[in-house]
Every structure is written in structure tokens, then in C-alpha cells.
Design a protein around this nucleic acid. Structure first.
Lengths: 195, 195
DNA sequence: TTAGTATTAGACTTTTTAGTCTAGTGAAAG
DNA sequence: CTTTCACTAGACTAAAAAGTCTAATACTAA
């Protein structure tokens, strides 16, 4: 399928540019140059800069999120251990540690000023929140965690905290810092474990 | 001193525009219109858009931060209670809950791409981190908290988490959500209390 | 091969951007 | 009163922005 090649190149370049510079500071011309695609092609596939970036969010950013954040019970692990493993994997993910969470960065920039972006980004937020919450709930159901754990609230807290840590200035961010800070989340979760 | 009035109006308008739209999406012309100040005056006081915003950060945003985040031991309170009070006060601060932390939002947008902004914002980060850490340290010294509390790491975690919570999409943010999520930070701190 | 559609190409337009320039105004000091 | 200088005023410029347009080209199916 060579037919989609220009479209795919555009989405790839758009992800990189927006991840680096943010939405407002990204220019269509720079995307075209990076993708080596002429303007006519871009406006053939996408109606506007905004439409291009919205498509990029769905087709590049969301899948990338599923790669970064993997909240499922790992084989032969408790729920607690699964979170521990996931955090450890995140700390080893260079782009994530260095550039922060692409979804959250876009949310910080655009959610307050654009309801189309807000709606789309919140869809993914809800999905992730639900994923984490269900995993915590599973831990409660399987008597790993105490019933007093407010799994919905804690899932939201985990998301906020992790995004907060990841999206600090690159000068403040490193695998070690991520491990050190995320440990407090694990410790807090550990409070609810039943021995 | 009427002499400084145009300058002050510019800084006020710049804070509002940048807090709302971010740096890249803020235009000098809109600032001038909002402040009702002609262009000549602006370029008399400030050499460029960037210089204007850097001045705004120092003269408006930083003082605002000291207002929002008040990490000192409150009179007649334990350190734990002081944090609890500060969080409660933050949850009642409308602009903070609705628009997020202005420093963090700017850090997310600019730290990765502009070292002048990064340097300035990190200065404030370090100051706040130190303030929180010293307060925790005081709690350890006064036997309120166990020595095992890594006060530097926990102070960093608190900052990241609070910023993460505050700067979520406005659709996800509310006083209740802030209280519910920040409670986990207090619970975690509570683990280290000596009774 | 050919007709028809999808894609490419990039010059062009319009709007907006940051920033410049020069003439003027007003207050304060001599 | 007058000189001086900080400040005002906004028209102007140049660059960059998003988006349009038309003609050429490459596929694809008949």
C-alpha cells in the first residue's frame, strides 16, 4: 500500500514536531519539509493544520501511549508487582523520561483553549484511568488490597502524579528521579496490601 | 509613580494572556490591546516579546506562586497540619484549580525548547523544592516524622504530584478532585509520623 | 490503450506575526 | 520659559503563518 505513504510520513513528522515544540509553535511548513511532502498532498489528506494534528493524536499519539503505559496484570505477578514492573519499564524509556508524556503535554497546552482537542484527549484519559482503576479493583477482589482503597481516586492520583513527574523540565528529569519519585506511589499502594 | 504605569499594565496583561494561551499562542498585539498601551511603549520598556515574558515571569508569575504555594509551618500547627491547611487553601483557590499552575504550564511548554526560560523557571522550582524539603526536615528534627523519610525526594514528589493534579484538563479539575487526590499525599506523609 | 480518479507540485494569496521608525507629547529641571 | 528626555503614538516593514489554486502526473480499472 504505497498509496498511504505521504499520509503516514505526514503523521510521523507531525508527531515529532508537536512532541518537541507543542501545537502552537509547530508550523505546517516545517512538517512538510521534515516529511518531504508537498503542501498539496497535505491539504489533500487533511483539511487543516488542526485536522492533521487531531489525526496524528489518534493514529500516532494514542498508540504510543499504549506502548508507554501498560497497565495490565503481568503473568505470575501480583497487581502491586505489575505496577512496579510498569514503572521500572517507564524509567528505562528514554524519550518518555526526556520529553515527558506527549498526551499530557498536549492536554496542558490545548485542553483549556480548544474543546475538540480537550474532548479527544479526555477520551484517552478516561480509558487509561479506567484501566488503572480496574487493575486496582482486581487487586481488591483478589484480596491483595484492602477494601478501604478508593481505587477510582487512587487511579486518578497515579495518573496525575506520573504525568507530573514525567513532564517536569528535562533538566530535572532522569531515570533515577523517576524511580525515586514513583516509589512513593508504590509505597502508598503498599499501605493497602493485605499480608 | 505614574511613570511605570504602562509597564505595569503590560506585565498584567502579559500574565493573563500567557496564563490562558501559553507563550507561543500569545501575540504582542493582543497584549497591547488588552493593556491599552501602544507598541512604542512596549518596545521602549522591553526589547522583545521574550524579554517581556521573562520580566512578567519574575515580576508577576513568581509572586503569584508565593501566593498559591505557602509552605511554612503554620502557627500552633504541626508540619503535617500545615501541609493539610495549605492544600485546603489551594483547593479553594479558583484560578489555580481552573487554570492550573502557571509556572508548571510554562515549564511544560518552554523548558524543553528555551534554555533562558528553563533556567529561570528551574530557579523557582529549586526554591520551592527547598522550602518544602526544609519544612519536612523540620518535622524530622522535631520528632514529628521518622528519620526514614527521604525529605528531599518526598518534597520533589509532592511538587510533581501537585502540579500534575492542578494542570490536568479543566474538565477534569475541581476543588473536590484536588482534595481527593492530594489526600493521598497527606496519607503518604502520615506514614512517617511518630505518635 | 485509455478514461477517470487520486495524488503531487509549488507558486500564490491573505493574514498575522514580531519588530522598526520617526514624529510628537508632556512633565520636570534649569 | 525653555530645554531636555522619557515616553507615546501608530503607521510601516519584513518574515512567516495557514491555506488556496491550477496544472501536471501517476495510478487503476475497463
Amino acid at each position: 500500500m504505497k498509496k498511504q505513504s505521504a499520509r503516514q510520513l505526514l503523521l510521523d513528522a507531525t508527531f515529532e514536531e508537536v512532541y518537541t515544540y507543542g501545537y502552537a509553535a509547530t508550523s505546517v511548513d516545517r512538517i512538510l519539509k521534515k516529511a518531504s511532502v508537498p503542501k498539496g498532498s497535505m491539504y489533500h489528506y487533511f483539511g487543516s493544520k488542526k485536522a492533521l494534528v487531531l489525526a496524528m493524536v489518534e493514529e500516532r499519539l494514542f498508540p504510543k501511549m499504549d506502548e508507554f503505559f501498560h497497565f495490565e496484570k503481568h503473568k505470575g505477578c501480583t497487581v502491586y508487582e505489575s505496577f512496579r514492573n510498569t514503572f521500572a519499564a517507564m524509567s528505562r524509556n528514554r524519550p518518555l523520561i526526556e520529553h515527558g508524556c506527549p498526551l499530557y503535554r498536549l492536554m496542558v497546552e490545548l485542553s483549556p483553549v480548544d474543546k475538540d482537542f480537550d474532548k479527544l484527549l479526555i477520551e484517552k484519559y478516561n480509558q487509561m484511568h479506567k484501566g488503572i482503576a480496574m487493575l486496582l479493583k482486581q487487586g481488591i477482589d483478589e484480596k491483595e488490597f484492602d477494601e478501604s482503597l478508593d481505587y477510582l481516586a487512587f487511579a486518578a492520583f497515579m495518573l496525575s502524579s506520573v504525568w507530573g513527574i514525567l513532564s517536569l523540565s528535562p533538566s530535572l528529569s532522569s531515570p533515577k528521579v523517576f524511580i525515586s519519585q514513583s516509589r512513593f506511589l508504590l509505597d502508598e499502594l503498599n499501605r493497602y496490601r493485605i499480608y
